[in-house]
């Protein structure tokens, strides 16, 4: 008990002394994670969409070769950036670029560090998201594509109106995953002296050696950030699923009530949702379980 009280006192001490620094670190971490996840998601979208352009043996040879080449390039990008540690990627890019360009291109000053950090985390996230988006697209029932084709829609129209909206809904848990991972893993950017939340800890303990109290603040800080992110993502998912009930449109003006049909409660024996929805639910569970895997 004494120790707990001592810890709380130390934390209080640290906080009153350095809260500006901690909060600045939180701000930088949040901005970096948000921007890099957004850019990484866009990279992943482009890769995933390009990766799933269909081709058959009947297509002209140049088109087939171009598409195969494209898939190979995306494959290499994914494997390289998924298969190496982000901390090394940061060093490699931050110091490699000036090395190869004879310092014509270098990341200098505060803006340079920001740029390099965003670049590295974005590219890294993009590699993971490329696979997530591809998976999201593949997991949409092929019947949806056939339904769209059957009314004469082209591949692009099908993707824009039918497949991507459903695929995006399926990969929101993955986007959330990546955002949370980036919140935490952007801490390795201290290596190129980016001043995020963890860098604040390193600086502060370097001054006063209060390792454990500072680590306690960091733990609480990271947990608060990730919990808030999880909560917001849940809200977003629920909003995207739309209402569970719908209004019947009554043409007959003499009818007294325009009844509202309620969808049966989820997870009850009366849940009659279509097979696809149940399948999606299952997938979400699976994604959740794989969370630590990244």
């Amino acid at each position: 008990m004494d120790k707990l009280i001592a810890l709380v006192q130390d934390v209080g001490l640290l906080w009153s002394e350095y809260h500006v620094m901690y909060l600045n670190g939180v701000k930088n971490t949040l901005i970096l994670a948000l921007v890099a996840t957004a850019i990484g998601f866009l990279i992943g979208m482009v890769c995933g969409i390009l990766n799933t352009i269909p081709y058959t043996d009947r297509d002209p040879a140049p088109r087939r070769i171009a598409l195969k080449l494209l898939r190979a390039l995306i494959r290499i990008y994914v494997e390289v950036f998924r298969g190496t540690p982000m901390v090394l990627q940061a060093v490699f890019i931050c110091y490699g670029l000036p090395y190869f360009t004879d310092k014509a291109l270098a990341f200098t000053g505060n803006s340079g560090i920001w740029l390099c950090s965003i670049l590295v985390v974005s590219i890294n996230t993009g590699a993971y998201m490329a696979e997530s988006v591809r998976g999201g697209i593949i997991s949409v029932d092929p019947g949806q594509t056939e339904g769209a084709k059957a009314i004469g829609m082209t591949h692009v129209q099908t993707m824009v109106s039918v497949i991507m909206p459903q695929a995006l809904r399926n990969i929101i848990p993955q986007i959330g995953n990546n955002y949370i991972i980036n919140l935490k893993d952007s801490s390795v950017m201290f290596i190129i002296s980016f001043t995020e939340f963890f860098a604040a800890h390193r600086y502060i303990v370097g001054v006063n050696n209060m390792y454990f109290p500072s680590a306690a603040i960091e733990m609480l800080g990271y947990l608060t950030m990730t919990l808030a992110a999880s909560f917001l993502l849940r809200l977003l998912e629920r909003a995207m699923d739309g209402a569970d009930s719908y209004e019947l449109v009554q043409e007959d003006a003499l009818t007294m009530t325009a009844g509202t049909y309620n969808h049966p409660d989820r997870r009850t024996p009366f849940d009659e949702r279509s097979k696809e929805v149940r399948e999606r639910e299952k997938q979400k569970l699976k994604f959740g379980r794989n969370r630590g895997e990244r």
Binding site: G143, Q144, G147, A150, I151, G152, S161, P165, R169, V277
Partner: peptide, 24 residues
């Protein structure tokens, strides 16, 4: 080769066993 399959399909409607309504 070179026939616009999408345009042809728009003249030939299809109803599937599994409905294939757009879920979104």
């Amino acid at each position: 080769h070179g026939v616009n399959a999408a345009r042809y399909r728009s003249h030939v409607g299809m109803v599937f066993q599994s409905f294939n309504l757009f879920n979104n």
